[in-house]
């Protein structure tokens, strides 16, 4: 599984980096950023889904999540 943020949709609510700081950070303006290459270790799969399901803008998707 990977995480991806659509920068056109992200408005900087910050739910992803609140809920899954291992996978997401923010830039200088508060917009969400995927940390590293976006690959999700199995142990963090639950957190990745939690972040995606709490984004008000539906800006996060999880390619490879069956």
């Amino acid at each position: 599984m990977r995480v991806r943020i659509d920068p056109e949709r992200c408005q900087g609510h910050g739910r992803c980096y609140d809920l899954a700081p291992e996978l997401f950070g923010d830039d200088d303006e508060g917009y969400g950023q995927v940390l590293g290459d976006g690959a999700v270790p199995p142990a963090l799969a639950g957190k990745a889904r939690l972040a995606a399901s709490n984004c008000p803008e539906r800006a996060i998707d999880l390619p490879g999540d069956g």
Partner: peptide, 13 residues
Amino acid sequence: VNRHVAFGLGIHR
């Protein structure tokens, strides 16, 4: 699962 919009949506978040 809580995609609430208390802080708005879109460019005026």
